[in-house]
Design a protein around this nucleic acid. Structure first.
Lengths: 343, 343
DNA sequence: ATAACTGGGACAAAAATTATCCCGGGAGGT
DNA sequence: ACCTCCCGGGATAATTTTTGTCCCAGTTAT
């Protein structure tokens, strides 16, 4: 596969673009179906007419079904998407990039093609990889902790319904995050447990309580029990955010935000803010997993993509080496660029 | 490889065409180098301007070197050609066709892309395959018999210079064929022996001698010895010709030609003419291997291509099942067509 | 010398691609 | 039962790309 990709790039480089583009189109239809020609042309930022020719070709190949409701990918098209993603991976030389990142940061690296800053559906690809990766070693008895975020929210949706994981326990890594419900860790934990046919426990603790309020809440027996379970997690899957974006999404005070940013924060994970050297510069008061606990957790999986997040990812990786990083092409390329520029 | 080819055909069928065309171009430059743009446009029957754009692309990729003497393929280009041929094989679905022919005729089938009726260089591909196939089982002590013909003539040229075959003996399958010297069995035997570093014995006996003349010639001790060796051959590599074409090339009388054709002859091999059912309808008087001897020869390799020869190949295969058939796309497709039409 | 190649450049004609409309129809919300 | 919105498909004109066909200067083999 890898060899053919390089062969193709040599003999017909323009062709690579065509294939990548068709993959993008197919993928975007798949995750937005049914969708119309014009709406699609907007999300792909591709002129309508060229899109139309492309779509027509795909339809002729039987990969697309197209009726007055809009376009959908056919069963055959679905099968093609998976194989195509794999091929595009090599076509873009992502295997090479993954190898280099692995060399620099010493963790497993999985890269999906695309840039989630430009194309929302790329998050689905990352989530699918995360789900597949989790599944590859998940066993009964494991405790899985998850965080919130847009990419994390896609993981349950990209996990097939399974059986045989009745003794798995899914928990949120930390308390409520003041985000939209569907992006909260609690929601994601519950949904993931649903897909796995597993148990789940939730943790409702507001962020940024005062010290004594926090104390009294965490001493509630039922809450205390959940926190204990969380700290004993075998697997953590978490997102990484940009510092400013996350601070705003959590509705922090403008003053606090300025303070955080002035201290050099670029990344956020688990409610901790990191500067570009991976130093902790601010902590959101919250219940659940602290980053110190991470060292005792056998399997840490970081999931984050988008070229704008590259520096955040880099900062977090400097703080902690996870077992695996699942990211996208946009972030991966930028990450290498940042690293290369420094050396 | 096969899977990627089918993937590519599904997702971007036009691309397949581009790749096949570039392969054709590269291949034709390789076998005719150095060659100019215009001359190439003639042998490819491709308009000059499109060819020019293609050539420019290939040059940009470093596959072509291009100077005032003409175009040549670079070292990298050479490496690409081999890999590309293999890929084009699957892209054209020749694996599938080979399987079907094998099923119908029960012999190994090797198909190379292209049609030697249209593109002369395809004969080189067949010859290269024949050479590689021969090499795969040739061992010291073997006697190899070869016939004449345009495709056969390319075999020595596509055989690398080898050592370790000092005890191999290469002989012509039959006496002189009244053809141009470079296409005669004797010449080919000598050249092949040269490449292998092997021994060779030649056989100069004119075609169509009268019975008593033939008798006296074949009783010559030295000639008799060679004929004995030929009959003991372990491996025979032979071409198959169209009946009319071969009769003319041998300079037979117009009257005889008409007679042969009227008896339904479509194919020629070893000086024997076959009708479309594989029955022998005419025999050129000549010394050497007779088709009866073929049954005692462990390894028979038939090499012939070009869509116009499909019916000749079919006729010969009905007469005798060789161990392997090495042919080209044009003949293979036509062959299946003929078979399919009958069933 | 000269004839027959070579690649590169130029340019008008033709073809394909592009952008941008409009139209009739069905779905979903009201 | 309506009304509105989005759907695919068709049409058209402007624009870009591709195509065919020259000529030219240099190189090589005769």
């Amino acid at each position: 596969m890898e060899e053919i990709a390089s062969l193709l790039k040599k003999i017909a480089p323009e062709v690579a673009h065509v294939i990548e583009q068709r993959f993008d189109i197919l993928k975007n239809i798949y995750y937005n179906q049914p969708i119309g020609r014009r709406a699609l042309s907007v999300v792909l930022s591709l002129p309508e007419r060229p899109l139309r020719t492309e779509v027509k070709r795909l339809e002729e190949q039987g990969l697309l079904e197209i009726d007055p409701k809009g376009m959908r990918v056919s069963q055959e098209g679905e099968r093609i998407i998976a194989r195509l993603e794999n091929f595009v991976y090599f076509l873009k030389g992502l295997n090479f990039i993954a190898e280099r990142i692995k060399g620099k940061f010493g963790c497993e690296v999985i890269i999906v093609p695309g840039d989630s800053d430009i194309d929302e559906t790329v998050k689905n690809l990352m989530a699918k990889e995360a789900a597949a990766y989790l599944r590859s070693f998940l066993k009964n008895g494991d405790i899985v902790a998850v965080t919130g975020g847009t990419t994390m929210a896609q993981i349950p949706k990209n996990m097939p319904r399974l059986t045989g994981y009745e003794d798995v326990l899914v928990v949120p890594a930390r308390g409520g995050l003041g985000e939209r419900v569907e992006l909260q860790a609690n929601t994601i934990a519950e949904e993931l447990a649903g897909r796995l046919g597993a148990q789940y426990r939730l943790l409702y603790v507001p962020d940024n309580l005062g010290p004594e309020a926090m104390e009294s809440v965490t001493n509630e027996p039922r809450i205390k029990e959940v926190i204990t379970l969380i700290r004993r997690a075998d697997i953590v899957i978490h997102g990484i955010g940009g510092a400013e974006e996350m601070a705003r999404r959590r509705g922090l005070d403008e003053k606090v935000i300025r303070e955080i940013l002035e201290s050099g924060a670029v990344a956020e994970a688990f409610g901790y803010y990191f500067d570009c050297e991976g130093r902790i510069v601010y902590i959101t008061t919250s219940a659940g997993l602290s980053v110190n606990d991470l060292k005792n957790i056998p399997k840490v999986i970081s999931v984050a993509g988008g070229s704008k997040k590259a520096s955040a990812i880099r900062a977090f990786l400097k703080y902690l080496r996870p077992n695996a990083l699942i990211t996208d092409e946009g972030a991966a390329r930028k990450l290498l660029e940042l690293e290369g520029g420094e050396k």
